[in-house]
Design a protein around this nucleic acid. Sequence first.
DNA 1: GTCCGACTTGGAATCGGTTCCAATTAGGCC
DNA 2: GGCCTAATTGGAACCGATTCCAAGTCGGAC
Lengths: 396, 396
Amino acid sequence: MATSRRATIADVAAQAGVGVGTVSRVLNGGPNVREATRRKVLEVMGRLGYRPSHLAAALSRGSPHTVAIVVPYLTRPSVVTRLAGALTVFDEHGYDTIVCNVETPQQRDRHLQALVATHRADGVVVVSLPLAKRHLVCFEEARVPLVMVDVEASGVPRTVIDDVLGGRMATEHLLSLGHRRIGFVGDAVARRAESELTFFSSRRRLDGYRRALRAAGVTYDAALVKCGAHSAAVAAEQAAQMLALRTPPSAIFAASDTQAIGVLTAAARSGHSVPDQLSVIGFDDIRAAALHGLSTVRQPLERSGAEGAGRLCIMLAGQPVRPMRQELPLEIVRRSSSARWRQPIVTSAARACRPGGRTRQPGSGGLAGMSAAITQQVLGGRADGYRPSDSALEAR
Amino acid sequence: MATSRRATIADVAAQAGVGVGTVSRVLNGGPNVREATRRKVLEVMGRLGYRPSHLAAALSRGSPHTVAIVVPYLTRPSVVTRLAGALTVFDEHGYDTIVCNVETPQQRDRHLQALVATHRADGVVVVSLPLAKRHLVCFEEARVPLVMVDVEASGVPRTVIDDVLGGRMATEHLLSLGHRRIGFVGDAVARRAESELTFFSSRRRLDGYRRALRAAGVTYDAALVKCGAHSAAVAAEQAAQMLALRTPPSAIFAASDTQAIGVLTAAARSGHSVPDQLSVIGFDDIRAAALHGLSTVRQPLERSGAEGAGRLCIMLAGQPVRPMRQELPLEIVRRSSSARWRQPIVTSAARACRPGGRTRQPGSGGLAGMSAAITQQVLGGRADGYRPSDSALEAR
DNA sequence: GTCCGACTTGGAATCGGTTCCAATTAGGCC
DNA sequence: GGCCTAATTGGAACCGATTCCAAGTCGGAC
């Protein structure tokens, strides 16, 4: 039993007294094999513990039946959700998926380079990573099928959302509740592109915020806009600063749910009740958002990954991918972190001294509102008076 | 330029007027190539847009230089953190990593089967998935190097923690703060193993909880132990039930941080302040724990993935892996969700009517305590009077 | 018994590298 | 210049499948 060398198709053929072609046919469920022969071959395969070499098969077939997906900061909830969606689809199509996690521009370039330089994957999905012209050229020249998710790039099949619209939706939601002093917490734009990965979503959501304010005739106040590293802790710090202003905002729009949760934390810490004293809205609708009763702009995260993967599969099957730019819908999810603006109560003692033990304190912390979350109302983005943004063009 | 067929090593050799061997040597940085020759070959490769075939190389080399990692419920914070750790190490070693996400026993079996049936990966890491004897036998027979993370399995190199000890540490932490009525919220044991994935960690942490109680002379109360699906929402529901008891617990140990966050939510919703009225401790120390000021039992999640990957790399390099069972250390992380037990105040009006506007309400919600989180005290698990658990044996 | 089409089969050619050995060339030293 | 060792180089053999075509079989019709 202790064969030193692994059995090959030739060994099986010899032992079974048939040709290698026949064994191959049995292996791949080929049609023209007599039942008796098939059984015989299978028996020998079992006896020899034969394991076909994926490599040899892939080589002669000309394709490794493998795809690669490149993601930044894998552990972020939005990213891993997209990844999971993509993995599911690739799995259903029988592809093995190589995952590349990148956290620096160097890693990004190294992985892209490797995927292009040698033929290890049939195609590649790039998630949330803006690629430079030179990257795209490499893929084009190497003829490696490429699909992008959550990134704009002309000429490449991509699945995106309209971040500007999303920013507008979030802001208009707050405006419609009567808020006029609305803060924004988002990502800082990378100072040096060679040492940090760049993302544009937050920036575009900020654009949407500004447009919505302008359209509502609310003047923009730079003191209410804070950008920093993408983390709940940093967002909490920034929200704290904002809440300490002489005239603090009555609502804050955070460019991601992670940051919004940071804002909730800051509010709880400084004793601002949500939504009574502060409304908060996030972006993405990650899992934790529902738990925290966080109102948010939902984007179909898992689906975006699934769509990207599905479209790559279509390309690999040699069919045309339409449309080149696929835009997924956004929708406002109302939960308990946003509410109608109310004249602030001057003495907070009045608020604190409501008697009656064990009364449920509505929104006393960022973690309230589960029941509201369950009975959440979902408003379709488009049904709410929004028109498809002007950037929703191009069909090529 | 529109070559229909991709250039091969033979084309390069012909164009450069050298043999294929020489081209191969240039390709792999082989030692004995004259500088002039190397340059010539490189020039031709560039001109032809030559991309070596990973498949062909792997086939003749006999190894795909690829590994696979199988994880359950990829999107769970603890899992994706382990995955990220493993990916980093594999990346550093130049391996491509195929990721298999499994959510059902069928998916698990299908993936394991595929990895074993054909030679597509040099080795496999299985994370948090208990394998049956039959699975292990398959790997053994197919001679596929296997490493496990967060799973016990005798005879297989594995990186684990002592869950029983962790349960004891968490419970003893609460006991040392003076708590005597301590609840437990954890995972339900799968009813039917064929339709649900099974995990044992929660179960073992519960064991630790029981042992700690017994050692402290506290009688076990089944009403204070709730097990259900692994989600914050379910944990919140269970905590709510527990808090509604005639004599509710003064502290709750949740078998994971995700569940602990659910407990915090429930506490906030029902108006129990943390830690004044309820102490909470979780397990894992995921990213969100710090934000929520959650005390927890930290296990090195990212490191566990890195260790598993590193140990697989050692196996693949043909070196012996020692020790067969690697146990990583646990440590209590004290944050603001756990505090010394105090006699409950009878009328909650007294609590609510503390005057003084804008006073910071300590722990008024689950999201408080960031500053405490920052100045967290970390107690080494072993430094705290714990002895290595009796299960920390075996060296084989 | 013959013939013909439909199944089955065997096995050489092929995929595109790596490897290894023999052959060639270069360089150093006397 | 001659000789010897070391550095280069060419190319056949090989990795382990898939594919395709020629060849062999089988059955039924005439």
